[in-house]
Design a protein around this nucleic acid. Structure first.
Lengths: 335, 335
DNA sequence: CTGAAAGCGCTTACAG
DNA sequence: CTGAAAGCGCTTACAG
């Protein structure tokens, strides 16, 4: 358990710590062959591996980034994280994952902790409540990238999907199939999270584009436990919707559960499209039409943007911008 | 961007670094009230936050653990990780997540990297190929916990589910429903991963327990792309199975896809039970009987075991043991 | 009750 | 081509 340090290697190889350090950092320019060999052998014999914490302290970089996500249990987040992890791993970065559960206080605490740990940058699925904190980070030139969500008044690189187009694809599909009374159920808008707001606005715009009237009773949003009641209320309308767009995967779960319980036939009684390409879409009965987000591409892009900022350091005076990714309609049998 | 250090705080407060350090570590025993106040104020004014990397180097602990998982995209892993993260967060630990994709080489590299970063311990969903490496870690007294899988010849704390019981529950349910020709399809056994092996053995034992013959053509295993062909082959038997147990969620996906395409009725043409309580089990048509693993409890336990080892240090001479968690049958309509 | 000094394990000018 | 020295930002005996 006695840990081997660079000094041990140096002593064994009969050289100084500096030289061992040069060796480790592959600065071989002026190193004699025999010196090299001896160091190599000493490292081998002692089974030495360098202490990254010491290196990090000295170099002021940890080769670690933080990712703050709403909840890793959400498929979308998991896929984005996996892509981030892969991209980071290629460049020998590690990632610390934190679940903020959409609680601004937790988010702030995580950001502070991650900074104290000197992570080289942070990718966050932001809540909308820490504007000042984000702007402080940006002012310092701290590498930061948003994913999935934008926050107004925070001018930062953001990787998000084209939410209006997402909804337009779904509405277009419904229209093509001849449905006119098209409803949408969204998760809670209380926090004004940008994808939800954009999807809601996209819904209104898409209806207008297709020359359909916007009917407020066909649009609902709320916490997950209110999804089924809201849906039930729509169904009970004098003129109930013929088609329903589920604002994300969790909403879709609720809708499918309700439809099953009430023995509604899909798409005869109610046509359904889900946003997020759920794992069972293909083999559900009926198979489910969905609009897929390019989660892996988004995660990869976010990692690339962050790593670029980290490499460029202060000098990276590129203006941050919003990177929109295009969704894909997966046409199946529920619409 | 000029970073504030403890020296800055000390100067501003007119005390020494030592005293500031005492303050930060809440060693107030002998500290004068005015000193305390002045340090507090200096920290406030300078917006100082301590550098954890420096502290880690000095104290030889990073308050960070590593989790090496086969693939974070797997629901089981995600849930376990979430539980681990929650438990760690409570004790101010952070977690670095790594995807080894069941590749022993990647796993080894991650372990070495994590150690170089001086993480205080590692939780791993192990492949079976790095026995020596694991034993080296244990010999050093390095905190290590296995989850989901055991590895023979490695005597370490492991948190796993009772796989034989899992299968017994499923077979018992089939028997209760009057099925006699019960088949099972498993993911590849090539790597001899313990849950798969145990499930296979559990299958044979359960059949024997219930007085049913074991018929080799009712048992298949292989890479995911061979699941459907294997299932097709069973169905084509002269006396095809009446009931099928899917060895995990991915196998279940394949089976459901096949059943749908071939328009098989569930459970009339084939009764199905899945291991792992998939998200859509409740509202699938028909709803799916599954055997659920207590993923969150398992993750929590793994974190607790690891954190305990970390706290106890070398002194923790408790004999490592295997912690088995009990599965639950979720009786629904597919069986 | 507080401070000076040494040290954690590296890296990096700089000297020779 | 290689080594001595300083320093990254903390913590921790120890002295007073």
């Amino acid at each position: 358990m006695a840990v081997i340090t660079m000094a041990d290697v140096a002593k064994r190889a009969g050289v100084s710590k500096s030289t061992v350090s040069q060796y480790l950092n592959k600065r071989f320019d002026y190193m004699g062959e025999k010196t090299k060999k001896r160091i190599e052998q000493a490292i081998e014999e002692l089974d030495y591996s360098p202490n990254f914490v010491a290196r990090s302290l000295r170099q002021k970089k940890t080769m670690t980034i933080g990712v703050i996500v709403a909840n890793i249990l959400h498929d979308f987040s998991t896929q984005v994280i996996r892509a981030i992890e892969d991209a980071c791993h290629e460049q020998d970065f590690h990632v610390i994952v934190c679940n903020a559960d959409d609680e601004p206080v937790k988010e702030r605490r995580y950001i502070e902790m991650l900074r104290a740990k000197q992570v080289d940058g942070i990718i966050v699925f932001p809540t909308s409540a820490n504007v000042t904190l984000y702007n402080d980070l940006l002012r310092e030139g701290y590498p930061l990238v948003f994913v999935d969500r934008m926050v107004s008044k925070v001018n930062v690189n953001a990787v998000i999907s084209d939410n209006e187009e997402t909804v337009r694809l779904a509405v277009g599909e419904f229209v093509a199939k001849g449905y006119e009374r098209i409803a949408m159920v969204l998760p809670s808008l209380e926090q004004q999270l940008s994808p939800r707001v954009e999807r809601m606005e996209g819904y209104k715009k898409a209806l207008a584009e297709y020359g359909l009237p916007y009917c407020p009773s066909y649009l609902a949003s709320g916490e997950i436990e209110y999804v089924q009641p809201a849906f039930a209320k729509m169904i009970a309308l004098e003129s109930p919707p013929q088609a329903l767009l589920a604002g994300n995967d969790l909403v879709l779960f609720e809708v499918l559960e309700y439809a099953k319980r009430e023995q509604m036939r899909i798409p005869e009684d109610i046509a359904i499209i889900g946003i997020d390409d759920v794992s069972f879409a293909n083999f559900y009965n009926p198979s489910l039409t969905t609009v897929a987000q390019p989660t892996f591409e988004m995660g990869k892009k976010a990692a690339e943007l962050l790593l670029k900022q980290i490499k460029n350091g202060e000098s990276s005076q590129e203006e941050p911008c919003v990177h929109r990714f295009q969704p894909t309609l997966k046409r199946r049998s529920s619409s």
